[in-house]
């Protein structure tokens, strides 16, 4: 069953995702879905399938490394004063709300600013929110390819003598089998998200 939410999401995303995401969301709507989510159900989507990025210890990570856990992935940059800390704070709250099941949630922060977000900065940054969180990075090309594969948007924007990053602020959720299931909007509160995560952990345990 589904609500009108995926369609609203599609329409809005026609604007920045060039319609690709819209078509995929609608395709996902053709399936009979056993659970309804507060977030955007993208079960069966053919994007955001996987990633191949490096962790601060130099190990290459893919979604298969986290089998048995739900994975919640967010694109951001550490110099972001606002949206990124808020998203990671929400992730920490969600993990806390899941209680013992929180152990089965892996939160991943992918930097869209690998030039400034060195492994040292990334590690300290994610640790400040929850020591279990992992920051991942790639070189400029890998970062761009990864964002494309997720239909995520980011852009370097000059400000004074420095620069900032525009970026989409969605969290992507994989089930414990490593299948992409959900997109959580930035505006969704931690309780709503935790409810979705609980369903994902229950139905695919």
């Amino acid at each position: 069953m589904h609500t009108t939410r995926p369609r609203q999401f599609s329409r809005r995303h026609l604007l920045f995702a060039g319609g690709g995401l819209a078509a995929l969301s609608l395709a996902a709507c053709d399936k009979v879905l056993p659970v309804s989510f507060n977030g955007i159900d993208i079960t069966g989507a053919n994007y955001a399938q996987d990633f191949r990025l490096t962790d601060p210890d130099g190990r290459e990570r893919t979604v298969a490394d986290f089998k048995g856990k739900a994975v919640m992935l967010f694109f951001g940059f550490t110099q972001c004063p606002d949206v990124c800390p808020t998203a990671l704070l929400r992730a920490a709250e969600i993990r806390h709300m899941l209680g013992a099941d929180g152990e089965r949630l892996q939160v991943i922060f992918v930097t869209v600013d690998p030039e400034r977000d060195t492994p040292v900065v990334l590690k300290a940054y994610t640790n400040a929110f929850d020591p279990s969180f992992i920051g991942l990075y790639g070189d400029l090309q890998r970062t761009s390819e990864t964002a494309k594969a997720f239909k995520a948007y980011y852009k370097k924007v000059p400000t004074g003598s420095s620069y900032t990053m525009d970026h989409s602020a969605f969290s992507y959720v994989y089930d414990p089998q490593g299948k992409i299931r959900l997109v959580l909007r930035h505006e969704q509160g931690a309780p709503e998200c935790a409810e979705d995560l609980r369903k994902i952990l229950q139905t695919t345990a």
């Binding site: 604007l15 972001c80 606002d82 400000t159 525009d166 989409s168 602020a169 930035h186 505006e187």
Partner: peptide, 19 residues
Amino acid sequence: PIVEVHEMAMQDGVMRMRQ
């Protein structure tokens, strides 16, 4: 030496920050 006044705006799920 660099302090700026910025505004953050979310539009269609994209965060933009501008001086």
